[in-house]
Amino acid sequence: MRIVSSASGRARRVGWLAASLIVLPLLLPTSPAFAQVPGPAGSRPLQGDCPAVRDIDLRALARQRERDLATEARRAAESGVPSPDVIARGMIDAVRVADWASRRPLDDAAVVIRTRMPGGGGHATDHRTVVWRDADGAWWGWRQVLGGLPAMPPLPPGPDVQRGSPEWIAWEKAQPPADRSMDDRNYPPQEGRLSRQDAERLEAAWRDPCRRWDPDFWPAELPLNRRVDGQRRRYCAQDRSGIYGEIREAGQPARLVGAACGNNSPTYRMIAIATYATVAGGP
């Protein structure tokens, strides 16, 4: 019987956890839910008419995902550390609109998108965004970027300023409310309507019927349904930080979505636009 010291056992678990965080974007869990694209039910175009999936062997991709998830579940059970799907769910669940926000997504929202792009690679900031389309068709957003230089508090009035004077009152009003968390004080969230450009781009991606073909996750290695440049597999370089996303649509369970590399699929466009959305503010 092989005996492993507690120190080496801890080292192995720490090493596996670190590796899991690196490959986590490659192993988000699949979901049986499908995209709830606006329009007539079942109106899915031909796969060949959708550029993002035209050459992808989607059945082979689904089998590959099942094998990867089974492997990671077994490793998690053996190591005693959370599996990538548990880690991914925890990362997304940390993204929420604060209770004090002026507007929150309602139950009748057509779609709610939560995204998180944690620090890593060339940046140390943690981007957290919630974007939703309300029943009236308007797109709203809540966006917070943690890390980096915190917001500078307003300088106090000079010693000659009297308490209760207009300048003193203006300074008091500029202070963060006492019920705000330290993160909300140091990194104030933006909230309000999305910019017109981002709203139009999100609307187009959301309504794109090709989204019905999109897998929940795009790995770095994709099986092809034909030879392209002599190859039956396509590889992409992970040229940007991983984005973890959740899309919740009316009448459907939430779906965890993401990609190891950027692509032009409607689903990836939705979470990428949401991650970098410009919140213009206003009612």
Rank of each mutant, 00 (worst) to 15 (best):
A11F: 12
A18D: 05
I22N: 01
V23S: 06
L24Q: 04
P38G: 09
S43G: 05
L46T: 12
L46C: 10
Q47E: 00
P51M: 04
R54G: 00
R54W: 00
I56N: 01
L58W: 08
R63D: 12
R67C: 12
L69R: 15
A70M: 06
E78S: 10
D85S: 08
A88G: 14
A94V: 04
V95F: 06
R103E: 05
R104L: 06
P105V: 03
D107W: 05
R116K: 04
P118H: 07
T129Q: 08
V130W: 02
R133W: 03
D134C: 04
A135Q: 14
D136A: 10
W139E: 05
G147P: 03
L149A: 15
A151T: 13
A151R: 14
M152V: 11
D160G: 04
S165F: 11
A170K: 12
K173P: 02
A178H: 12
A178M: 15
D179F: 14
R185F: 10
Y187F: 05
A199T: 14
A199P: 01
E203V: 03
A204M: 15
P209F: 12
P209V: 10
P219W: 06
E221M: 09
D229L: 06
R234H: 09
Q238G: 11
R240F: 07
G242H: 06
G245R: 09
E246L: 05
I247P: 04
R248G: 12
R248K: 11
A250W: 07
Q252T: 06
A259F: 01
G262P: 06
R269S: 07
I273R: 03
A280N: 13
P283Y: 13
